[in-house]
Simulated scan of single mutants.
Amino acid sequence: MDAALLHTVADGVATVVISHPAKRNAMTAAMWRALPEVLDALAADPAVRVLVLTGAGPTFCAGADISSLTGDEEPQALAVAAEEALAAFPKPTLAAIRGFCVGGGSQLAAACDLRFAEEGASFGVTPARLGIVYPASSTRRLAALVGPAVAKYLLFSAELIDAEHALRAGFLNELLPAGQLDKRVADFARVLTTRSQLTQAAAKEFADGRTDRDAYWARQAAASGDTAEGVAAFLERRTPSFGWTASPAGAPASEPGRTTGRRGD
């Protein structure tokens, strides 16, 4: 199968699949370039409430496919642009990881809000094997996620760590037994689709360190009516029907619909 980014939308959950089986789902230059476009389209789709990023088959992503890069392209710039687009996605993102999550794969996983993995997965940040200076933004994101000491351990050594180590280090949110990752991710994503998008969008910005939007989110909360709806639903023992919906700019959008799509290389 050719290298491709596949994506579908079902029941509020967008799933983006990194598919390059011949190279353990290594990202080609075309795939790095395509990812921001795919994410922009999904962010603008009001049917999307949650995004799941995963790999085809038994591997998440083994990094960048160096053989696909030409002399006039800067592989690091392509990877950073894709990483930043993923980090900026305005709705919750979850990496579902099995097998190798190495190099650019770890870069993409770290840019997601949450990371669930299956036992047997391996993680590594490997630029020291090639004499590459890891991007400043990627280094800071990794250090914020696992702490400076663990980030230095990974970057200095370029050694792979197992899933249990990644969980202890804080890289992973959950570690699942073999065969249970897909169900757990599906169940958790379904839960996220029922929660307040207003709460999620504000919490994402606050947790990611943004400090210039406090007043904006206070105004959104006051105008949305979601708090009153949430309290009423709790007292009436029913599922809340929250009205605020997210758009790429963080402002309310229209009510959800549904789309599907595919992006190749």
Rank of each mutant, 00 (worst) to 15 (best):
R49Y: 00
G103E: 09
G131T: 04
E73R: 10
E119I: 12
S68E: 05
G63C: 06
L69D: 03
L114N: 05
F89S: 01
G57R: 02
N173Q: 11
V125R: 13
A109P: 04
I97Y: 12
L145T: 11
G57W: 01
T59K: 01
V80P: 11
E174P: 00
L108Y: 10
P127W: 12
A64W: 08
E84T: 04
A149F: 13
E174Y: 09
C61R: 03
A166S: 12
D113M: 12
L154D: 01
E83V: 00
L160K: 15
S68A: 04
F100Q: 11
E164N: 11
V150W: 14
L154V: 02
F123T: 01
A151W: 05
L94Q: 04
A88I: 01
A149W: 13
A109C: 12
C112A: 14
L94N: 04
E119L: 13
L53I: 05
A121M: 06
G103A: 15
G120E: 05
A79Y: 05
S137A: 14
V146A: 11
R98D: 00
A109N: 10
G99I: 01
G147E: 07
P92A: 08
N173Y: 08
R140M: 11
G131H: 13
A82L: 12
L167Q: 14
E159L: 13
E84K: 09
F60W: 02
E74A: 13
A166H: 07
E74W: 07
L154R: 11
A87T: 01
F100G: 03
F60N: 01
Y153H: 14
A77W: 05
A151C: 15
A109R: 04
A109T: 03
G55A: 07
L167Y: 10
F116Y: 14
L130F: 15
L94V: 11
T54E: 14
I132G: 09
R115G: 04
V48Y: 07
T54S: 12
A128V: 14
A64D: 08
A158M: 09
V150K: 15
V146D: 10
V125L: 15
Q107A: 13
G147A: 12
A121K: 05
E164P: 06
A95S: 06
A85Q: 07
C61F: 00
L154Y: 09
S138K: 04
K152I: 02
A151I: 06
T126K: 15
A158L: 10
A56P: 00
P58T: 00
E174V: 03
A47Q: 06
L145E: 11
V48L: 06
A144T: 13
